[in-house]
Design a protein around this nucleic acid. Structure first.
Lengths: 236, 236
DNA sequence: CGGAACTTTGAACCGTGTCAAGGAACGTGG
DNA sequence: CCACGTTCCTTGACACGGTTCAAAGTTCCG
């Protein structure tokens, strides 16, 4: 068994995220570190399959994944991203059936999501996570429906920076961005060729630095104005 | 008070929908008919406002509504539709804040959603409704991200027919379709001009008959093949 | 009967897709 | 550590679906 799977390292980001979503008790904070039943998800591996029982709830400890829909003619749309600390199948009881297929976009590690005590911090964190997931879905719809390629990219970069910040994965304006341009295209409803051109246009504008799997937003304010971006707020 | 508001007529469709989602007990079936606190929602009225507390859960008894996002420059995207029997604000406790703005697209009637008994049929119906709502969100994303105008329209018509069928509002291949072409455009991420052309193209193909607020799909099979459409199935 | 909201049509324009080919980066095995 | 294949990125020319702008026609409702 690899170091990633047996050690408690690698659940850091996920724990950080849960702690940004709700105050956790001492014991709740420990439960993720030594959770049993971790499993590695190699890149492109299906994590969940549409129409099959979802099984026990899982949390993504590290790596990026997505929910996806593939049409019979091969067209593919990434419906939503799953980032470290996101819950993968936490809906409607274990006898329910998955409504989407989910796959790993990078190498990742999954673990069974610790069962929350009624009314505890973990339960609140999960509820907040579900609420946020809903927000991201609505945003994805607005993005695809009404924004230009450049705007979609800007909006998504801002959102992703904020999501990763919750998991403590940002460093200033920098954050990991391991997606290929083809994955970005499938996510933003464009072609990879056009993603390439749009990325370069944003680089030329001095708004984006994207190299070696790391993105840096140099002018986040201006990008935010461009797309009327406001951070997600669930609770007041 | 109008006949619609005081009589038990007008909750028929909503009750029919809940009964298609789960088996309801005798008493549960009655609870919607004489629910207190109905209110009329005139066309264009805000039902819920992003950032404000959601208040008590509501169910849409009749009429069409939507969740919407408006950008600062005026662009508008309809995120999801709310049809008779749909729950409007049923998420994450009454202290939560609405994550979208919802408005009435036609004249409609709302009522407080009857509180479900733990483990009862109504609770199962609400859970199924929430699961379906999630399915429709994912579909909307795939539609906007990867389908052409003609395909978006076909896919949406099929979905809407099936949704209305759950509420007993279809008659064969016919169903009410009260949206203006501009609303359709905002829903499908297009312009009203192009919606107009696309509708006519579908009419010319003999696939759609849309007049006087009623739509009829003449070739549902072919449309379904075109967009790889399959009915939503939550439970197995 | 009159006005507002909605639908229809035409012509020009433009953002994004398509097709094709070459180049860079990366991992793997020898 | 090099050689090689594979995956990913980049670029150019051209095509096309959908938008924009403008104006006329229709329906609906008070």
């Amino acid at each position: 068994m690899s170091a990633l799977l047996k050690s408690s390292s690698g659940s850091f980001a996920a724990l950080t995220r849960l702690m940004s979503l709700a105050r956790l008790s001492e014991s709740e904070r420990g439960v993720l570190a030594d959770v049993e039943g971790r499993r590695r998800a190699p890149i492109h591996r299906e994590i969940q399959v549409e129409g099959k029982p979802v099984g026990e709830p899982m949390i993504l400890l590290s790596g990026w994944a997505c929910r996806t829909r593939t049409f019979s003619d091969g067209r593919r749309q990434i419906l939503s991203l799953l980032l470290p600390g996101d819950l993968v199948s936490y809906a409607f009881g274990p006898d329910a059936v998955a409504v989407t297929t989910a796959i790993a976009l990078t190498e990742g590690v999954l673990a069974p999501a610790p069962a929350p005590a009624e009314g505890g911090g973990l339960a609140r964190a999960y509820a907040a996570a579900a609420a946020l997931e809903e927000v991201y879905l609505y945003r994805q719809i607005a993005r695809l429906g009404r924004l230009s390629a450049y705007e979609r990219l800007a909006d998504w970069l801002l959102e992703t920076r904020d999501r990763l910040a919750l998991a403590g994965l940002t460093a200033g304006d920098s954050f990991p961005m391991p997606l290929t341009q083809e994955a970005l295209a499938d996510l933003l409803g464009l072609t990879s060729v056009h993603i390439n051109r749009t990325l370069q246009s944003m680089r030329r504008d001095g708004a984006l630095d994207l190299r070696g799997g790391t993105a840096r937003l140099s002018e986040p304010r201006q990008l935010a104005d461009l797309v009327d971006y406001r951070p997600a707020a669930i609770n007041r």
